[in-house]
Design a protein around this nucleic acid. Structure first.
Lengths: 222, 222
DNA sequence: CCGTGTGAAGCTGTTCACAGCT
DNA sequence: AGCTGTGAACAGCTTCACACGG
């Protein structure tokens, strides 16, 4: 792989990595449309991005474009897949078979493009054994460590209530997962060696609520 | 309400608003524990935040603390609820009764703390009429405009596939919603007057995948 | 004396603008 | 001639550090 090595990976911002995912979506759509080549300006116009930022983000990882021409769509798509590590299978385990856990385990985004859900766990004996339509059967949370090791799980997803999230996180880390995606609305801490990303779905609703409260004041002005 | 008025709301960053939600969670937990008063330093230590940032974020909206003492937990919690507009009922409509739409409509976070889901729609006639356990029955997507008006919907949530998301967004805006939360992995555009927030759940998995790919290189070094 | 509220400093992320390659 | 790749300027966000009030 022809990645630049003189810029350390740790120095690249999460914002840049998130944008690489966005660029990947855009390129996949262009490829469907049969577009062979695209300039950063065309990409920016089409998908409401900034052309300089696209070039800068890509330049962290290599020189993928051709001056005077632009980028080869299929090639750049492959590069992004390599950079994001989506060429390897990532085995995912979901802790918490509540509404969100079940939805994610059936969600196509979590079962395509390199990701595969290999287990869904719950501590509630009433849920254990139930088959999730279009997905797996729920397994007992007590088997977490064994399952992580046997199925060589890479990523743990936490969809338990806030009060149980820290314990789930600790167990996942002890069992040996390499990264954790947390949906519980709580601040987890304790394991700097395992990458943790937290997502609080309600925060986004509250953000919109804030704008609703303050938009009416603006509207009353103009 | 004793908000500062000399700083315009538009100048406050989304990052600050998101942190207000986090502070609210923290205060709710402290209140459960019976803590009456808290300093920014104690809050920061307890929940892994930065004390100066807490003070600065709060100072945009007023002077809520007492010098030499700290903040009254219950009072500050009320202030945050007011600032975020969570004292008013926000009526939410979900477009798309797939896995994610159904999960969100049952998700407690979307039915508490000021939010109430008043309708779940889908274009698929096979889904229409089905009752979501612990939630509402699915209604036809064709009734969107009527339902938005009759039930005075504030916020539309898009959980349809990427290809249908722009249409759903346009219909929601035309029907008169004031804000939209989009879960479809696509770049929406066209209505600057309606606040739009997009969340792509898969981007977070891809971010973790990136770190997995690059962590092994770090591990091989040290 | 202690902790808030806040200018100022420092840092990170974005955008500009152009040299250099094709 | 046109577009990439990139240093430099700019903008925005975070952290510092201290004057001020309780």
């Amino acid at each position: 792989m022809a990645f630049k090595r003189y810029i350390p990976v740790e120095s690249i911002s999460e914002l840049t990595i998130n944008r690489l995912s966005v660029y990947l979506r855009c390129l996949q759509q262009l490829e469907l449309e049969g577009v062979m080549t695209v300039s950063s300006q065309e990409l920016a116009d089409r998908f409401h991005l900034n052309s300089a930022q696209i070039r800068k983000d890509l330049a962290y990882f290599g020189e993928f474009g051709i001056r005077g021409v632009g980028y080869n769509v299929a090639q750049l798509r492959e590069h992004l897949i390599n950079i994001l590590g989506l060429d390897e299978e990532r085995r995912v385990l979901v802790v918490g078979a509540g509404n969100l856990g079940i939805a994610l385990s059936r969600y196509s985004g979590f079962n395509t493009g390199g990701f595969r859900i290999v287990a869904v766990l719950d501590a509630d004996p009433h849920k254990v054994g139930k088959r999730i339509p279009g997905s797996l059967a729920v397994e007992p949370a007590g088997d977490l460590a064994r399952i992580v090791k046997e199925r060589r799980v890479h990523i743990g997803v936490i969809t338990v209530p806030a009060a149980s999230a820290q314990r789930a996180y600790d167990e996942l880390v002890d069992a040996g997962v390499q990264a954790v995606l947390n949906f519980a609305p709580t601040q987890l801490k304790g394991h700097p060696e395992v990458k943790l990303k937290s997502v609080d779905l309600k925060i986004n609703l509250e953000l919109l609520s804030f704008f609703l409260s303050h938009a009416s004041r603006l509207a009353s002005v103009g």
